[in-house]
């Protein structure tokens, strides 16, 4: 169900959904790993539609890694330059899920806790 592996890597983490496009610059604090909605994204399988806003966002993603609060992986519906650059530089697995994005979000939201598992090289995400 992965449409494209942009940055490959292993991930086994609790899923967290953010329902809107994220501007990492201004909406995520790299020192605390928290969003403005007070959601902690460190070590999580972060599911969100994509990014927007300032290109400084790339540095913020890198900053999350620097301060040890980077997500375990990022699963997005759309990937644009700010996000791709940040993910590669910070070595955070980044997966594009287009066809089954809605189902994935729905599935994760319906469960109290969901674990996302991805193995290097595989084009599927296992949702537990």
């Amino acid at each position: 169900m992965i449409d494209k592996i942009i940055v490959d890597g292993y991930c086994r983490a609790e899923a967290v959904v953010i329902d809107h496009k994220i501007s990492f610059f201004g909406e995520v604090n790299p020192r605390t790993g928290k969003t403005t909605e007070d959601i902690y994204i460190g070590g999580k399988a972060l599911i969100f539609p994509g990014t927007r806003g300032s290109t400084v966002g790339t540095y913020i993603i890198y900053g999350l890694k620097y301060y040890g609060h980077e997500p375990a992986c990022m699963i997005v519906y759309e990937a644009e330059p700010i996000l791709i650059a940040g993910a590669i530089l910070a070595d955070i697995p980044l997966f594009l899920v287009k066809r089954e994005y809605k189902e994935l979000v729905k599935h994760v939201k319906n469960k109290e806790q969901s674990i996302i598992l991805h193995e290097r090289g595989r084009e599927v995400l296992i949702v537990e």
Partner: peptide, 15 residues
């Protein structure tokens, strides 16, 4: 561009 410390902060500097 994007080299003003006010914008990029500590993460930008470290990078």
């Amino acid at each position: 561009s994007g080299i003003s410390y006010t914008n990029i902060g500590e993460p930008g500097l470290k990078f």
